[in-house]
Design a protein around this nucleic acid. Structure first.
Lengths: 243, 243
DNA sequence: TCAAAAGTGTTGATCGTACACCCATGA
DNA sequence: TCATGGGTGTACGATCAACACTTTTGA
């Protein structure tokens, strides 16, 4: 236990964002090329220091979302991933980062001439087997964010956050396939999602023009928790050795 | 964007612990009665400031576990819940807390005469419907920890962390029943857990003396992810209104 | 009328649940 | 030999994967 003159040490606080979206049926993450040291020129997650001692951490994540990605936090899903506080993770000193996961519908390229101009969408597939590195411990944060997304679309309605407000069941299926990296049977998927009570609510009018028969449109219903869950097929398991 | 003389603000960092265990087949959480202001005399989660600017946040959680609860972090499950950083959550100033969830096998009462003497195990049931309050935002942290535990025992082997190194299937069942608040059929539970490949491994010798037929002993196998998952029965859902 | 995508029916295997029943031990 | 808890068999309904098939549109 500390004596009475002991003062607790202070740390610097940053937020980092794993922003995911679907582009051309592939999962992408928004990354920036760092313009300053440390890690100048390397890829990193968007983020930054909290603005002042009174700023809420969640508000800081919303602000960075706006400043670095031109995205409005009220229009997308934003949840905390966790705190990353290992000493030495940032060469500038003791910096603890609170990471957030954001999920956005398909979006245009970040506009040049804005603060977001250094940002670009990269396919997550390029980072999947350690093929490409990121600054700081951002590789770990990205992996944690991906696993969170993969896991949460199983038993929550999170997958709809990748879609526009109204969407077809085929569009929703493309989300699951991109995030999980598995192909799914469209006929079974169609019935499975509709069988979950209050997950999807039909939207009557404005159907879109496609090639074949037009699809029905849906929006998310009140049910956030999926029962039964959408179970992802297991990857090739080689543990078939029980009797 | 900030100008060049701007300096990022610093914050104070604490860790808080949600320590769960099973006592007499009921889920309990370790709480301390605060000896100093703020919230003097009220119940709070064990925790405290990081010791110095170089201490890892996880290590700080291990240290508090030892100091405040007399528990050894190497012998129990410890995982991060998340960061709690709303301004005003602590009247002493801008304090960000990183919360951890710890799960321990059944343990004796904290010893008097130690730093942990102000700590005691309380049944979580007393806090379940806002019946009793906690200091700071610890009520929220406790709720998040409970939901994490309830959710994780569904699809991971976390439930075994509530048991000793070797345990019977009936003991494991009591964990599920206490954490979920549901009674389960012992016969079906028995086969269900054994059907998960590599979840449980038999332990041959030393069986315990009980009333009836002695039960087989098991320890956890290498499989951390449960496939298929143990699904908790749904609470009385009143949304049976689809056609 | 053809291609393409949406949506439906059906079937056999698997899984979950309920519960009857048998087994091994201490008292 | 009885009470007690451990463990097995089985049957029925629900769910799932696979895939043949019909529907609705644009071209």
């Amino acid at each position: 236990m500390q004596n009475e003159t002991w003062q607790p040490p202070s740390v610097l606080l940053t937020v980092d964002l794993v922003i995911l979206t679907l582009r051309s049926s592939a999962l992408h993450v928004l990354l920036i090329e760092r313009g300053i040291d440390p890690y100048k020129g390397e890829l990193a997650l968007p983020g930054g220091f909290i603005a002042d001692a009174g700023e809420d951490v969640f508000d800081a994540a919303c602000r960075e979302l706006r400043e670095e990605a031109n995205l409005d936090a009220t229009e997308l899903h934003l949840e905390q991933l966790g705190a990353y506080g290992t000493p030495g993770r940032d060469p500038r000193g003791r910096i603890v980062s609170v990471a957030y996961l954001a999920i956005a519908p398909g979006l245009p390229e970040p506009e040049a001439g804005t603060d977001a101009s250094a940002a670009s969408w990269l396919p997550v597939e390029e980072f999947s087997q350690g093929r490409r590195q990121l600054a700081f411990d951002h590789r770990q944060i990205l992996d944690d964010g991906l696993e969170r997304a993969r896991s949460k679309i199983e038993h929550t309605s999170l997958a709809a956050a990748f879609c526009d407000e109204s969407f077809t069941i085929a569009e929703l299926q493309r989300v699951y396939e991109a995030v999980w990296g598995f192909e799914l049977d469209p006929r079974n998927f169609y019935r499975k999602v509709q069988a979950v009570p209050n997950f999807l609510a039909p939207v009557v009018p404005d159907r879109r023009i496609t090639k074949g028969r037009p699809a029905r449109l849906f929006r998310t219903g009140p049910q956030q928790i999926l029962r039964p869950p959408m179970m992802r097929p297991l990857p090739p398991t080689q543990s078939e050795d029980e009797e």
